[in-house]
Write a protein that binds this DNA or RNA. Structure first.
Lengths: 192, 192
DNA sequence: GAATATATTTTCATCTCACGACATTTTTAC
DNA sequence: GTAAAAATGTCGTGAGATGAAAATATATTC
């Protein structure tokens, strides 16, 4: 017998329902999916209803048919919405110590507990010194609202203007630097 | 015996190495981890070296000890950067059929292959009709650039003005609707 | 409406393979 | 060098994943 607490926790991932959703989206039946995966429709039925948990090889077979990653089945949920008004953003503490901060952040999704993204409004001020290179999370997205922003990702430097956007893997070292003369503001979205 | 191709594909997730990394970060030994998880050190050793793949309950036990989500073991890697210039965005095809589209999308991260976010520049035009309710991905973030935008998440409706932002779970049905008189543009970021 | 086809769930038996106990080897400490 | 600890190898067991076939449910056709 499977431990109850583990079973419950696993079911919170709703692996089965997600498989079913993928299947229905492609308008497939269980037998049809069974044919594609080489698995019996009986077992697929049980998996979809959380009656048993597939082994990783089995789950991978299913994932391959739908062209999705395994992590498609493991992202946690937590229905919630958080509105952040322009004038009521939470200003985030400046990371560094005694230096004059080259930029400031305001959270755009602070109230979210189980977040899959972190969204910030960033304002780059002062002299055009690059921020300390840092790396975190898994991906980062930046959209320039005003001014000019230079972004350095793993040595590669690009200059962004208003309306430009950049997306990159934030596991590699990266840094920002205000370009041009005036201030620069941008939306920054990162994934944990 | 496990199918070779499946095994190879599974190993690309490097589940074992990730467990080992977590363990070493906490300066744990295999026996110690075994004590915490209730698993034998022998098996943990095999799992770390990809000699066998844990069942989901087993993997969950390990995850719980380290305080990580299951998807921590399934995220794929792929360092890359994609810059999208304001005038060179890829206009995305309008989903619906013959109707007048109420909004248009321009991708802000199109070149990224293995993306963890999808970023769009959206422009809401025409009459203030709500878009068809839809649900997808796992999370969504919207930042209003101009005009006024009404967002409906699972029945809950909010009106956003310039500079406002909203974050919500996009597994639940949601829809947009241009508010006010003029057009409305926004940044939309979603996670897959 | 019955009849046919199709899709899903249940039952039940099989058998793989995850898993642990213990032995062996390798590494670290001293 | 030896002793202790940590990691890996060997082997047997059984939980539970998986499939075959039957039973049930759902849809379709005449």
């Amino acid at each position: 017998m499977l431990s109850d607490t583990l079973t419950d926790e696993l079911e919170r991932y709703r692996i089965g329902p997600r498989i079913k959703a993928l299947r229905l989206k492609k308008k497939m039946g269980l037998v049809q999916l069974g044919a594609h995966t080489g698995l019996s429709s009986a077992m697929l039925s049980k998996i979809e209803r959380g009656q048993l948990f597939p082994t990783l090889p089995t789950l991978l077979r299913i994932a391959l048919v739908f062209g999705v990653d395994l992590d498609h089945f493991f992202s946690k949920e937590g229905p919630r919405m958080a509105v952040t008004r322009k004038g009521q953003r939470l200003r985030l503490p400046v990371p560094a110590g005694g230096e004059i901060p080259a930029y400031s952040f305001e959270s755009l999704d602070y109230p979210i507990a189980d977040r899959r993204m972190d969204a910030y409004f960033a304002e780059f001020t002062g002299p055009a010194n690059p921020s300390k290179p840092h790396q975190h999370g898994s991906a980062e997205f930046i959209y320039v609202l005003s001014g000019r922003l230079n972004v350095n990702v793993d040595g590669e430097e690009v200059s962004l203007e208003v309306g430009d956007a950049v997306y990159f893997d934030s596991n590699v070292p990266h840094s920002y630097c205000r370009g041009g003369i005036g201030n620069c503001s941008a939306i920054v979205v990162t994934t944990p």
